[in-house]
């Protein structure tokens, strides 16, 4: 279903889609329309479409929204289509659906598309912009979307220049924009394990003299930068050192030393870490870091995130 990018036409197509869904024979209990926000997705090339659609399909269960996917596609002209993501919750008799709009445009036309987005956003609900991939850090057409959103989600791990990406996030934050970075979200599991050591009284914050962070991948990563800053803010008296290892990207280990005590958290598998403290050790799973899981976490936080804001500042 293709239409020219005229908001009224798209909205009419959406209404027709809902009528169609309501009449479908396989939904005797009718469909339930769910919408908690507008989720704008700035996607990259055509090859991404399927992955974006898959991610949205999962996200809709937790955060039903009107998804508007903006896809840049050179030489294709401007086009739009509407779609619905439906699922039947376990043990229920009523199908739940959330709606979506996909807009494709060549690079030159993308900046004009911004003007048709306003009438397409669901009134009175939050607007979240998800800048998928590294293009968001350099493309002025995407930058034009920033003022539309209550929250902007980036992934600095996808940026070609980590420091420049961090600079952009900081400047947006300084201008009062609410920003998030999936690279920070990937650290939640590690941060939680570290925090638990202090909950349990295994360590006295004042007694920690030094912290060593080992991360994989080459060059400076925002992931290591974030973790370092967060630890420095929590333990102002400790020296924090960062080492890189020839390993897969991501945090590999954190070791804290204080007096005669040594506490370490070490990755032991793709989604598992082992914490060792005071002669005891235990293994604990890390939460999944799939795109869906990371986005789910960020979409649950629509208000201020003081911890991340402090790290970013």
């Amino acid at each position: 279903m293709s239409v020219a990018v005229q908001p009224e036409k798209i909205l009419r197509e959406l209404r027709e889609l809902w009528d169609e869904l309501g009449r479908a024979e396989e939904t005797p209990g009718g469909v339930l329309r769910a919408c908690a926000m507008t989720l704008l997705v700035a996607a990259e090339e055509r090859g991404e479409a399927e992955q974006v659609r898959k991610t949205l399909g999962v996200l809709m269960h937790d955060h039903p929204s009107r998804a508007i996917v903006l896809r840049s596609q050179e030489g294709s002209g401007v086009g739009a289509r509407v779609f619905a993501e439906c699922w039947m919750p376990f043990g229920r008799h009523q199908q739940i659906c959330a709606e979506g709009i996909e807009i494709t445009a060549g690079g030159a036309e993308m900046s004009e598309v911004v003007h048709v987005l306003l009438p397409l956003m669901v009134p009175d609900l939050p607007v979240v912009l998800w800048c998928r991939g590294g293009r968001a850090f350099t493309d002025p057409a995407i930058e034009a979307l920033f003022p539309l959103a209550d929250k902007i989600i980036f992934d600095s791990a996808a940026a070609s220049d980590a420091k420049a990406a961090l600079q952009l996030l900081r400047s947006l934050h300084a201008r009062g924009r609410r920003v998030a970075d999936l690279t920070w979200t990937r650290l939640t599991g590690w941060r939680e394990v570290l925090s638990q050591l202090f909950d349990d009284g295994v360590l006295d914050p004042d007694a920690v003299a030094s912290v060593r962070i080992v991360h994989g991948g080459s060059g400076a990563s925002t992931c290591a930068l974030y973790l370092t800053k967060w630890i420095e803010q929590g333990l102002p008296g400790a020296r924090v050192m960062v080492e890189s290892a020839s390993d897969e990207p991501g945090i590999r280990a954190i070791t804290l030393l204080g007096g005669s005590a040594e506490v370490s958290i070490r990755r032991t598998g793709p989604s598992c870490v082992e914490a060792r403290a005071g002669g005891r050790s235990y293994r604990t799973p890390l939460p999944p870091v799939t795109e869906e899981a990371l986005m789910r976490e960020e979409l649950s936080i629509l208000g201020p995130d003081s911890v991340f804001d402090r790290v970013l500042a």
Binding site: T188, R191, D199, D204, I301
Partner: peptide, 18 residues
């Protein structure tokens, strides 16, 4: 030891039991 945890993040971490 009863010291405030400098790494608490109630927005993202669930409440844990002592």
């Amino acid at each position: 030891m009863n010291v405030a945890n400098p790494f608490a993040d109630p927005l993202r971490f669930d409440r844990r039991v002592p």
